[in-house]
Amino acid sequence: MKPARFHYVRPASIAEAVLLLAEHGEDASILAGGQSLMPVLNMRLSRPRVVVDINRIAKLKGIALADGAVRIGALARHVEVMRSPLIARHLPLIAEAMPNVAHVAVRNRGTFGGSVALADPSAEMPACLLALGGAVVLESTRGRRQVAAEDYFHGLYDTARRPDELLIEALIPPQRPDTLSAFMELSRRHGDFAIAGLACTLRHDAGVIHAPRLVYFGSEPRPVLARTAMAALDGKAWSPATHDAVAAALADDLDPIDNTFGSPAAKLHLQRVVTRRVLDGLPDKARAA
């Protein structure tokens, strides 16, 4: 289990990095935290000609609030996001989700940008990004562009990022004071990739739910914004009947993948259980808020 030969380059700036990507395109792999890349290199499942190590690019680091958005630099480690007071205050959904991301050792190295760039279907951060209506900033020698999360996740490890683009940062609107959020996932062992999971945000006014965003992950090739289920929830009051209707509606939104962690039927069932549990728990959360 040794990687095939590759060239290693460590650019010092975004400009250098995107030049390298422009030159090598699909033959290049970007190394951030390495928590997913290193295993696939060692297993020779990925055989890039060039590995571009972005760890020394200072401008990709950090977490900040600016221009009405929380900016999470591509190189922000999961542990930094988890410990960030800014995230705790403005993006409680991410703060709630973060302890579910793998284990301490992985969180110490793994990065927010790496997770979003890879788009593993079971990963927590892509689902949160989509639930929060965030966007990613991509840069290449052709320029910089911003892609909304809704347009970014295309499929299994497939995103809007082009081979010559570097993911610079995620921009996420802060959660409003009247926004409720919740996160739940089911994994066989703590820290495993989820079999079923839900990241959601919604607003409520006098017990009536508005503008829910329900994002399911773990069972689908990509995080899925469950529009039918959302419609079943929008404008309704908390009630077991509503929650059941939302769960039932998932049949139209989800098409679970079949793998060793469970059949599509089991995963759809589990997503419904997660849905009910999250929705059943929200009124208490609302009262506490």
């Binding site: 066989r188 469970g262 059949s263 089991a266």
Partner: peptide, 8 residues
């Protein structure tokens, strides 16, 4: 093994 699927 008694997986969730088996129990369900």
């Amino acid at each position: 093994p008694m997986t969730p699927e088996v129990v369900l």
